[in-house]
Amino acid sequence: MVSRSAAIVEAKNVDYYYPGEGETVWPALSGINLTVAQGEYVALIGPNGSGKTTLLKLFNALLTPFGGEILVQGISTANEETLPAVRQACGMIFQNPDNQLVATTVEEDIAFGLENLALPPAEIRRRVEDVACLLGLRKLLRQPPHLLSGGEKQKVAIAGVLAMEPRCILMDEPTAMLDPAGRQDVIDTVRDLNKRQGIAVVHVTHFPEEAAWADRIVVLNEGQLIVQGSPEDVLTDLSLLHELKLQGPAAVELAALLREDGYRLPPQILHNRELVDSICSLERKN
């Protein structure tokens, strides 16, 4: 059991804006306060342009805030000297794995960050072996990344981050370009790392069914943190989601329609199985 008391990432009253050219400058983020605890799985949802990606980039120190501060394991991201420590603790997975695979073979790609840390070769070899075993990539180590499937490439990207022994993985729509099997594989891999190794996850997604597996949901809209809470509370609040032009998981949406039709379904249906079981038990009574 991993202790959840300590914060891994903290945003304290963070403001950020992208400089506009002659147009009104909209704040990309304003007054964001958010703490991600050790071992926590947070899903970040919100419409396009709500600031999700900006927040991830701030956590990874790709951007630094104009107001407030970001702390990664207590270290401010504004400090140039401590950037390597911040990025080692908090690794980033982008939507398109092609944007972050750099080497000509899988093993060299996984080793890339480690070589930059100037670790001894034996240690690099050990870590590459370990993460390849863990993610089921051993057979692919000598392959060129561009010949892999999308799901495999995304797992190589995860392996590269994991080899750095991070405390938190930031993922920006990591499954958007993958097929259903690849999607499931990546989600299972990350959930497993989260559960077994206590690595915190911040997962940006447009798919409510994916968000439903998180410990906590954080909702952004127009640069502001609107609400946060458990998936059972946030993803079942359809009036809120619809107001923000978001969707609930299919099971939640369908349950709401059926309740309008007089079905007495329990209030916190989130996953398909819960809806199917509830309908079946109602039908059995009839």
């Binding site: 690849g182 299919a250 369908l254 199917v276």
Partner: peptide
């Protein structure tokens, strides 16, 4: 390795339960 839309999945699961 392909899946159906979430709503269609729900209908298949209901049918599997004999509804």
């Amino acid at each position: 390795g392909l899946t159906l839309p979430p709503v269609t999945e729900i209908m298949h699961e209901l049918a599997e339960k004999g509804l």
